Simulated scan of single mutants.
Amino acid sequence: MTERAYHHGNLRQELLERAWATIDGDGLDALSLRQLARDVGVSHGASARHFADRTALLDAIAVTGFTRMNDALAAAVTSETTFAGQLHAAGLAYIGFAVDHPAILDLMYKAKHHPDASPELAALSRASMVVVNELVGEAQARGEVRSGDIERQSLVVFAAVHGVAALATDDLLDGVHWRDAAEATIDAVLSSLTGVDAP
Rank of each mutant, 00 (worst) to 15 (best):
L155T: 04
F51P: 10
S128H: 11
T169S: 10
Q153S: 07
A52H: 07
G175A: 03
V132Q: 08
L193G: 09
A184S: 14
L33R: 13
A48W: 02
E80Q: 15
L11M: 13
A56K: 05
A93C: 13
V99Y: 10
V136S: 07
L172Y: 08
L121W: 11
F83S: 02
H101V: 00
R152Y: 04
E17G: 04
L173D: 14
A160I: 00
F66D: 08
L36S: 07
E3P: 02
L124K: 14
A90M: 15
A168W: 09
V161W: 10
N10D: 12
Q35N: 13
S192F: 09
M108A: 12
T22G: 06
V161G: 08
L92W: 04
V130E: 14
L16F: 07
D197M: 08
R142K: 12
Q13C: 00
A75S: 12
P102E: 07
E134Y: 01
V164A: 09
T81A: 14
E144I: 00
A56M: 03
V99L: 07
A165E: 10
L57Y: 06
E3L: 08
L33I: 02
D59F: 03
D106A: 14
H88V: 03
S43Y: 12
Y94H: 15
F97E: 13
A181F: 07
L167Q: 14
Q140R: 11
D171G: 03
D116T: 07
Q13I: 00
S154Q: 04
T67A: 12
F158L: 13
P102G: 10
H44Y: 12
P119R: 03
S147P: 01
A123W: 04
D180N: 10
A93R: 14
H162K: 03
A52E: 12
P119T: 01
L92K: 15
A84C: 00
L36W: 08
D149N: 13
A74Q: 12
Q13Y: 01
D26C: 01
S79L: 02
E17W: 02
L193A: 08
T78R: 15
G148N: 06
V156M: 12
A72I: 00
D170R: 13
V77Q: 14
R4M: 08
L58P: 05
T64P: 00
G65K: 04
Q140A: 11
A123N: 05
V42R: 05
G148A: 04
A98N: 10
M69S: 08
L155W: 02
D26I: 00
S79E: 13
L105I: 06
R126A: 11
A98Q: 08
D149Y: 01
Q35V: 00
A89G: 11
M69I: 00
Y94N: 14
A60P: 06
G143V: 01
V145E: 11
Y94C: 04
H162E: 10
A117V: 04
T82M: 09
T169V: 14
A5L: 14
V196H: 15
R179Y: 09
L33Q: 12
V40M: 08
M129W: 02
L155E: 05
G65H: 04
L124D: 09
R142F: 08
A76F: 09
D180L: 06
I186V: 15
